[in-house]
Design a protein around this nucleic acid. Structure first.
Length: 574
DNA sequence: GGACGGTGAAACTTCAGGTTGCCTC
DNA sequence: GAAGTTTCACCGTCC
């Protein structure tokens, strides 16, 4: 078991502390830069050990890694070669290196790396693996690295204990602090480890000792208290037939940790009632037998959406209780059942239903209108923020696409107007992605790092899939093709014209575009193209595979390597 | 006199992380 | 709240 040695290092940046020497309990750290976190990292390298430095922003993680790497010189030729190879791998992880890739590659060439959610997953894995191999000595990271990773870090240097939140800068939770400390001295790698928190002044030092080192971890609160979570689970319980009456539903919640913590069951019941009303209004559930039963004006065609009682009710249909809530039967409609299966917040699903109804009555809808529809959901948050300098640009796009939008534009004075504008900007970013703009362009224009981009893209893909499922249930056949095409374009980041070529294995956005620009626009074009042309465009191996995929196996036939002089191989820079 | 570059102050911007579906177009 | 980035005004130099 590891022993945590928890120490404090005073930050000498503060003027009042300047006269004081940097001190750590039982340790002397050589002052090189005056930045405690950096000096500690350098000291760790001097001990031939490894460390993680935890900071509160992605930018901070990058700068910290850069600052440490600037102080290092790799003298051993063999080590330099190993790091150069690694650095090259980091640089070429994407089709085209971004500024972030170059920054990471530079740091890695000195054995230092940064790690945060903005990194591409390939780079993140490479960083973690190289730290385990001992090639990387220091990782400067945000809290991504604090959760559950088993790394051979002798030290966890916690530089920042504050983070920007909903109410400005605030202290990180004690639980998170403990998670960070727990990264040091893992049993597999060290007999003990050191967790070091950096304080900027005496007051902060005392606060860290009392709040974090001697403080107790926070209580855990049930997430059911959050309305989106509650309505999702109420629908889910009904749709999965886990409950079929109001009484069963309330009984279920009365036994949850939420009820235990909240105490006041009558208020909880009131909240559940509100959610039931909402779900009924949305036509995701049917409520029967309630004393104040509402008359919902449903069209005859819509009634076919409901699952029959025998389909959805659990065996309690013969329940003879006299209790009024027990008599109130809850059944999910087909639509409600699917919404629950898709794990969507009912509010999001209802927003989609409204938008898709609007879309189905239109002659034509654009990709942008669907992208804005999914961008305006809770699931897509946090959205890209519209800066003051970008306001005109977003407004211009809005004017241009106004007729295409599927939701109503809120008034500029409404509370959610800013979020609406943000949804337009987020949709603009997706729109540029499917217009074949690459990661570097999107990083420059929208300040979205590759890792965040791919997270947002997979979110958009999920929401578009959910929209497709809802459109299918609503019989909006016309929209199904648009949605499915858009999902494909989001996945690959391509214009519509490349969709056919992407069906060929080993052909992604880059190769498809090369083929298209050379006049090879579809499967027939690939069949008709001679192997030499394909080899010049894609390289020999891929050309053979592509030919094989369209039914022509050249594998055993002799073929001339049609590579032009100076042509690159099938690397990422093609 | 105008273009250009350097400098510093002021204004502005940004700030962690990442479940859930299905496999088809 | 703080750090980093962008913008802008001002000044000096050069042609």
């Amino acid at each position: 078991m590891e022993i945590l040695k928890v120490c404090l290092l005073e930050n000498k940046r503060t003027k009042s502390m300047k006269a004081e020497k940097t001190k750590i309990e039982n340790m002397k750290i050589k002052e090189i830069t005056g930045e405690p976190a950096i000096d500690l990292a350098l000291d760790t390298i001097g001990m031939n050990k490894q460390a993680l430095v935890f900071v509160n922003t992605k930018r901070g993680a990058e700068k910290c890694a850069e600052d440490i790497s600037k102080k290092l010189k790799i003298e051993n030729e063999e080590t330099r070669k190993i790091l150069d190879v690694l650095s090259n791998q980091m640089l070429n992880a994407l089709d085209r290196p971004t500024k972030q890739c170059m920054r990471l590659a530079n740091c890695v060439s000195k054995g230092i790396a940064f790690h945060h959610s903005g990194l591409h997953s390939k780079q993140r894995e490479l960083v973690e693996d190289s730290f385990r191999d001992g090639k990387i000595k220091i990782i400067s990271a945000t809290s991504t690295l604090a959760m559950g990773l088993d790394l051979p870090a002798f030290r966890a240097i916690i530089r920042d204990l504050k983070r920007f939140g909903h109410h400005g800068m605030s202290d990180i939770p004690v639980l998170e602090y403990l998670q960070m400390c727990g990264r040091a001295g893992r049993p597999k790698y060290d007999s003990y480890g050191e967790a070091i928190a950096v304080a900027s002044k005496q007051g902060e030092k005392d606060r860290i000792i009392s709040n974090y080192m001697k403080g107790e971890a926070e209580d855990i609160f049930s997430k059911l208290a959050a309305e989106p979570v509650l309505r999702t689970y109420v629908l889910s319980l009904i749709a999965s037939n886990f409950v079929s009456t109001e009484k069963q539903l309330k009984d279920f919640f009365s036994k949850t940790f939420w009820a235990h913590q909240y105490g006041d069951m009558s208020r909880i019941e009131h909240m559940i009632d509100k959610v039931i009303d909402l779900l009924e209004d949305y036509e995701f559930i049917m409520v029967q037998g309630r004393s104040d039963e509402k008359v919902v004006n449903k069209s005859a065609s819509r009634s076919s959406d409901f699952v029959s009682a025998s389909d959805v009710c659990v065996g309690s249909s013969g329940d003879s209780s006299n209790d009024s809530t027990n008599a109130t039967k809850l059944r999910a409609t087909l639509l409600g059942k699917r919404v629950a299966e898709l794990y969507l917040d009912p509010l999001t699903a209802f927003h989609m239903v409204k938008c898709l109804n609007t879309g189905s009555s239109r002659e034509k809808i654009t990709a942008f209108s669907l992208l804005q529809m999914v961008s305006a959901t809770l699931e897509m948050r946090p959205l890209l923020n519209v800066r003051m300098s970008e306001y005109d640009l977003v407004q211009e796009k809005l004017v241009k696409e106004n007729d295409a939008l599927l939701m109503d534009e809120p008034s500029a004075f409404e509370y959610d107007y800013d979020e609406f504008m943000n949804s337009v900007k987020t949709a603009m970013m997706f729109d540029e992605w499917i217009d074949e703009k690459d990661e570097e362009y999107l990083l420059e224009k929208y300040n979205v790092r590759p890792g965040e981009l791919h997270y947002k893209l997979s979110n958009a893909d999920w929401l578009l899939y959910a929209s497709e499922e809802i459109a299918r249930l609503l019989s909006h056949q016309k929209l199904l093709k648009d949605l499915s095409k858009l999902r494909f374009r989001i996945k690959y980041g391509v214009k519509e014209e490349l969709l056919t070529l992407l069906k060929i294995p080993d052909v992604g956005r880059v190769r498809a575009r090369k083929l298209y620009l050379s006049g090879i626009k579809d499967i027939a074009g690939v069949k008709n193209a001679d192997l030499t042309t394909l080899t010049q465009l894609l390289g020999k191996q891929i050309a053979l595979k592509v030919k094989k995929a369209v039914g022509e196996d050249f594998e055993k036939m002799p073929v001339s390597d049609g590579k032009r002089k100076g042509q690159l191989g099938l690397g990422k820079y093609e």
